Amino acid sequence: MVRGTCLLFRKYGNFVDNLRIFTKGGSGGMGYPRLGGEGGKGGDVWVVAEKRMTLKQLKDKYPHKRFMAGGGANSRIFFFHRVSALKGSPGKDCEIPVPVGISVTDEHGKIIGELNNEKDKVLVAKGGLGGKLLTNFLPLKGQKQIIHLDLKLIADVGLVGFPNAGKSSLLSRVSHAKPVIADYVFTTLKPELGKIMYHDFKQISVADLPGLIEGAHLNKGMGHKFLKHIERTKQLLFVVDISGFRLSPQTEYRTAFQTIMLLIKELELYDEELQTKPALLAVNKMDVPGARDKFQELMHQLQNPEDFRHLFDKNIIPQKSLKFQHIIPVSASTGEGIEELKNCVRESLDEQADQENSASHKKQLLNLRLSNTISYGEPPSNHAMNTS
């Protein structure tokens, strides 16, 4: 049993998760044809991950969103006993500080690089060569490039649920923090990050993300703003209201079981790879009247999903079923099941880590065996044959 846990809570204000910026490498310096002097190379532009940086800070500090490296110096001539043609000094590099979890793409959507750890860096605009014999001693201009900085939060666990499923309330209960939570849909319009701190100093990061709606894969509602953030989570924690979900009086009411199937379908339509992530299910609001009976019914439906396909239109039935590692009934209002939820989250992540370590160890052994097979299978050299 894991005890003595708490959670540190952080909420972003005026959240910015993407920026479009202009970058330009520095121009090279002039060469000196008479004495073969070379101009300095222009500086490069790099995107560098920093732990405490946010895209909002970057936007506020550089409102013009233009980043240019320094130009290379011209070839210089010094007179000291004899004439010397020296190579010009290179231009100063430009570094763009961004938060960890940034994906850098060009204007056509091609990925230039991803920055998943502090101090990771990626080159986005090269500096021009300095003037030399190869360029007829004329300098070259630096590369120009418009890039997109796209933040995808990195967390151990991503909360997945439709609006008013109680995700923010659940995170609040786990953390003992008291964020203001309004009683209407789309309460969470920006990501909220928290860290579960265990008694043995183990930390698990949790991302509460903007609520999905039906059609999110088509970018409806918060759509892709939500879905892109769960790409980098290790596991998914589905949160559903035991009483079901209804977005508005104009939309259809969905039971808890239908809600789960719709969530799975939205993930499938956006990116099938998301269905390969380990998943847990928290069935929230178990304090409401009749919740126990509804929970028993839900468990029966989840164990026999094929018997209830008639409840869905064909186009909203997931192609693949998703097996939850743990299903935990909870109440964010009363605290019921919260400790069990914390324990299950940690247990699931520990199992995943063990499996990844085991797979990595097997791969190393396989590579070692292949290496030995190739080594032992090599024919003897000519020298060895001649001396026998």
Rank of each mutant, 00 (worst) to 15 (best):
L298H: 00
I242L: 06
Y270D: 05
V240W: 00
Q275W: 06
F312W: 03
R309L: 12
H300A: 10
G223I: 05
I213V: 15
L227M: 06
L298C: 00
L322Q: 00
Y270A: 08
R254M: 11
P210E: 00
R292G: 13
H326T: 04
S331R: 13
Q235M: 15
G244V: 05
T255H: 14
I260G: 01
V283L: 02
A256C: 15
L302K: 12
N304P: 05
E272F: 07
P305L: 07
H310G: 12
P289E: 01
K294S: 08
F226D: 03
E266P: 03
F295Q: 03
K320P: 00
Q258N: 06
R246M: 13
Y270R: 04
I213H: 14
R309D: 06
K228C: 06
L212H: 07
R309Q: 11
E252Q: 10
T233R: 02
L237E: 02
I317H: 03
K234Y: 04
V239K: 09
E231C: 02
T334Q: 08
D313T: 12
T251C: 03
H310K: 12
L267W: 13
R232N: 14
S333Y: 14
G221A: 11
H229L: 06
H229S: 03
F295C: 08
E272C: 00
Q296F: 09
E273N: 14
H326N: 11
I317A: 04
A279H: 09
N315W: 09
D307L: 15
E306I: 06
S331K: 15
R232V: 02
H326S: 11
Q296L: 15
M222R: 05
D241H: 14
K323V: 08
K320E: 11
P305A: 02
L311K: 12
E231Y: 01
V330P: 04
K220H: 04
D241I: 03
A282K: 01
E273W: 01
S248D: 13
F312P: 03
S321C: 10
G244R: 11
K294Y: 02
L281E: 15
T334Y: 09
A282F: 00
N284W: 01
H300T: 12
T259K: 02
D313V: 01
M286E: 01
L269E: 09
P278G: 06
P329G: 02
M222L: 09
